[in-house]
Amino acid sequence: MLNSINTNPGALLALQNLNATNTELSTTQGRINTGKKIANAKDNGAIWSMAKMQSASSQSLNAVKDSLQRGQSTIDVALAAGDTVTDLLMKMKEKALAASDTSLNTASLKALKSDFESLRDQIQKAADNATFNGISLANGKTAKLVFLANADGGSFTVNAQTLGLAGLGLSLTATFSTASDAKTMIAKITDALQTATNKLSSLGTSSVGLDTHLTFVGKLQDSLDAGVGNLVDADLAKESAKLQSLQTKQQLGVQALSIANQSPQTILSLFKG
């Protein structure tokens, strides 16, 4: 082996190995600090790009969930109004049935008529006030509502169900003045009650559909997040063990470089007399 004070192959080799160890150690420390094995495009461009696209899809599902949740609330308000409407219709039927009794005196008939009309007006008020965020599925002003269904802008449509008097086959002037009129009104209220329950059933089906789809979107988002984690997250247990190994290797590299740097010093002994 050439003994030279200008060139020290052993030190150069030790330095190369030490630099490689330091680079690997820096990478491991970066993974531990960030918790990711691929933190930017420099680490692995293809995987980083794939993970970013999946993350974007997952984040966009937040808007879908918000839309579906608004849909749930809108339907819930309409269903609450529907429950009120059916209760009022049952009471109206009770009043009309009582008024159909021909043995009633005029005062009693007028009292029942007044109660009937009050209940009728409450139906319309319930339908008109069944709004959420300014939107209603019960007042007849909206034919349908369209909510987001997926990250590509797909839609989930809910058909409105008018629960006001017009939607139930009644009018603002629906009433009775005689026992005969009251008897006729019983049939109309019965039909209105059947219509109301059918409309509520349709809203209930839409609500279940929204609930099911919202659950699916939540699971899809979780799966996407897990997939992104599999692509970019670091195995911290593995990186921790590797860190210990590299730190030891670094210390040995420093010692090896120190020993290699001492080699030229032996040449001095050749010149001592």
Rank of each mutant, 00 (worst) to 15 (best):
K36A: 00
A107Y: 09
Q161T: 03
T184Y: 09
A80M: 14
N19E: 09
F147W: 07
T34P: 00
G71C: 03
K144F: 09
S269T: 12
T21M: 07
L137Q: 08
N33A: 12
D181R: 04
T28Y: 00
G227P: 02
K91S: 15
K141G: 09
K199W: 04
N22V: 10
L89C: 07
G154Y: 08
G218W: 02
W48D: 01
G45W: 00
A98D: 05
G273P: 15
S223E: 06
Q72H: 10
D225K: 01
A226F: 03
D233Y: 00
L220Q: 05
S177I: 05
T212R: 11
G164M: 03
S207D: 10
A182Q: 03
S136H: 03
L109D: 02
T173G: 07
K52A: 00
L104S: 07
G140R: 04
L109P: 04
L137C: 13
A149W: 10
A46R: 00
H213V: 11
L214W: 10
S207N: 13
K272F: 12
Q251A: 15
L88H: 10
L97E: 12
S245K: 07
Q247W: 09
S103G: 09
S108H: 06
L79I: 14
L97A: 13
V146A: 14
S114A: 15
Q265F: 12
M185E: 04
A96R: 01
G82E: 05
L145P: 02
F147C: 05
K113Q: 14
L145N: 09
M185C: 05
K36V: 00
T195V: 11
M1Y: 07
A226M: 05
A20W: 08
S155N: 10
D181I: 02
K110A: 12
G30M: 00
A111S: 14
A192E: 03
G45V: 00
I259N: 15
S55H: 02
M1W: 05
A130P: 03
K242T: 03
L172P: 13
A14E: 03
T86W: 09
L220D: 02
